[in-house]
Simulated assay, not measured.
Amino acid sequence: MNLLGIHHVSILTGKAEKNFEFYTKILGMRLVKKGVNQDDTTSYHLFYGDAKGNPGTELTFFDIPMLAKTHPGVSSITSTSLRVKSSASLEYWKERFQQFGVEHEEIKKRANRSTLAFEDFEGTKLILVADDNEEGVAPGEAWSETDIPVEHGIVGLGAVLLRVRDQQPTAHVLTNILGFEHVGSYPSVDGEGLPDVDVFSTGEGGVGAEVHIQERKDLPKERIGRGGVHHVAFRIPNEEEYDKWAELIQRAGLMNSGKVDRFYFKALYFREQNGILFELSTDTPGFDVDESVDSLGQNLSLPPFMEHQREEIERKLRPLTLSE
């Protein structure tokens, strides 16, 4: 019983319209689901992914207007990687970022991979990482309905970087409960004298199945706001294994949400000891359970158990115009 890798990463935004422009028009990702935060239906929940909305490709955003900015620190998911096919693609993206005025670094090596770090307009820390034919979790499929050449398109999620004050409790949860393996480390690229970053891997391995951890005793605790990462979800293949994972998390004594039906996937949430929120999510049934692949993200999607509230939900939602 192994987790397959990263399922999705959920982030906070204060400006859904501008968020849509950035992730679809500049990054060329596809809006695969326009929904609501099922725990607060006055807020939109936007999902961006690959051409088919495959598991392991989605960045999701909770829209919270007037949200304060994030104050970075530990107990945080500090950065999220997005996969591209090759190192040559990073040169393309570097030029594109210059063209659109996107804050970015130079191309650097992280975990022996070519990477290009950048930020969105709210300060969300993102890293393009080149697959370069590396074995491991398969990538998704780049969205072709964009001006970005398919060979340079984003094909899925890569590793997340966690920063914590004490690495041991987080590493314990990853290895002894979730079944990750410690597979190495690499020097920090953020400055001389900073601690190395440890790499933990699950499933078939590769960048789509990794969590990176850096211990930073010098930093305050993060105060999350716009641009901050709310949680990271890990992939479970099906509902049968989901039931087993729910039992395992309970037996491990981790306080958790219990089983949560999101309709598009089954979920379970818990915090590890440093306070980072983890989610376990099923690959099934997927985002095309209520929309065809061709029409993903075009309408406001509600799970069947919320359909009777549609009129009320739509009345309370603020107007949201996403220009195609």
Rank of each mutant, 00 (worst) to 15 (best):
E307S: 12
E314M: 15
F270N: 01
F234V: 07
F121Q: 01
P65S: 02
A142N: 04
E106F: 10
S89D: 14
V137F: 07
P139G: 03
E239R: 08
T80K: 01
G49M: 05
V74Q: 04
R271I: 07
E95T: 11
N2G: 01
H308I: 09
P55V: 07
K109C: 04
D39C: 00
I127L: 13
G56Q: 02
Q250P: 03
L12A: 07
E58F: 04
I64P: 02
E311W: 00
Q309N: 08
T70P: 08
H231K: 10
K94N: 11
K15M: 12
G203E: 01
K125P: 01
G179R: 00
G253M: 12
G14C: 15
L162C: 05
I26H: 10
D132S: 08
H308N: 12
E291Y: 00
E134R: 07
G286M: 09
V84H: 04
E181A: 10
T282S: 05
D147P: 08
D40F: 13
A68N: 06
E204A: 15
G203Y: 04
V129T: 15
F263S: 06
Q99I: 10
K316D: 15
E151F: 07
Y48F: 15
G101P: 14
G73N: 00
Y269P: 11
L3I: 12
V173A: 00
E192G: 05
G227V: 09
H152A: 02
E291P: 06
P304I: 13
K94H: 15
L322F: 13
R113I: 02
E279V: 04
T42V: 03
V211E: 04
H212S: 02
E204R: 03
E135N: 13
E324F: 13
G228H: 02
A51S: 01
P195Y: 13
V211T: 08
V197T: 14
I127P: 01
L300P: 13
V260Y: 12
K34V: 14
T57S: 03
E134V: 12
H172I: 09
V164D: 05
G203S: 08
G191S: 14
K259C: 07
K108C: 00
I148E: 02
T170K: 01
S185H: 06
K85I: 12
A159D: 10
